[in-house]
Each structure stands twice: as structure tokens, then as C-alpha cells.
């Protein structure tokens, strides 16, 4: 499912490029330009895909970090 979510993100990026609507000036519902409606749909689609990401691709192991006390100062690694 994780890879399906990643695939959906790629799909969103591809369908965002709506070349087929480039010269379409139709108004939907009497007032909404079709290009704007489509791209608003992309925004809603993005929210749905990111919701699926939080369900199926979430890095749950990172949530355990908050159960430890936060570091008070930087424990620097070896630097030059």
C-alpha cells in the first residue's frame, strides 16, 4: 500500500499538467472556469492522497522518539 501511495503522488504530479484544458474557457455551474475547477480538484485530490499517506505510509517508528526526553544540547558527531 505504501508504494500505491507513492504512485498516487506521482500520478497527481502528472495529471496536474492538464494540457487538454489549455484552451477551454467553459464555465461550469455558470461561473466556475473549468481550468480552475479542475485544479481545485487537484488540491482536494492532494489532500486525499496525503490522508492515505498518513494511514498507509506513515513512519510510525519516528513517533517513538517523542517518548524519550528531548536532547537539551547538540551532541555533536565527529567533525573536521
Amino acid at each position: 500500500m505504501r508504494y500505491t501511495v507513492y504512485g498516487l503522488v506521482v500520478l497527481l504530479i502528472i495529471i496536474h499538467q492538464d494540457n487538454w484544458l489549455w484552451d477551454d474557457k467553459r464555465l461550469i455551474l455558470g461561473f466556475m472556469p473549468i481550468t480552475l475547477l479542475y485544479q481545485a480538484g487537484i488540491s482536494i485530490g492532494a489532500a486525499i492522497v496525503w490522508f492515505l499517506a498518513t494511514k498507509f505510509a506513515w513512519p510510525h517508528h519516528l513517533e517513538e522518539v517523542a517518548q524519550e526526553p528531548p536532547a537539551q544540547a547538540q551532541e555533536s558527531g565527529e567533525t573536521e
Partner: peptide, 21 residues
Amino acid sequence: GVGVYGMLASSSGIIHSLCFF
């Protein structure tokens, strides 16, 4: 014209959340 929404806004909706994630 209306094309700025796709160029500036819906693209940001995808990419910003991608960066947060």
C-alpha cells in the same frame, strides 16, 4: 488569468505537503 492557480497554488499543495512528509 485563472492558470495561475495551477501554476502557483495546486502545485504548492502537492509539493509543500510532500516536503512536510
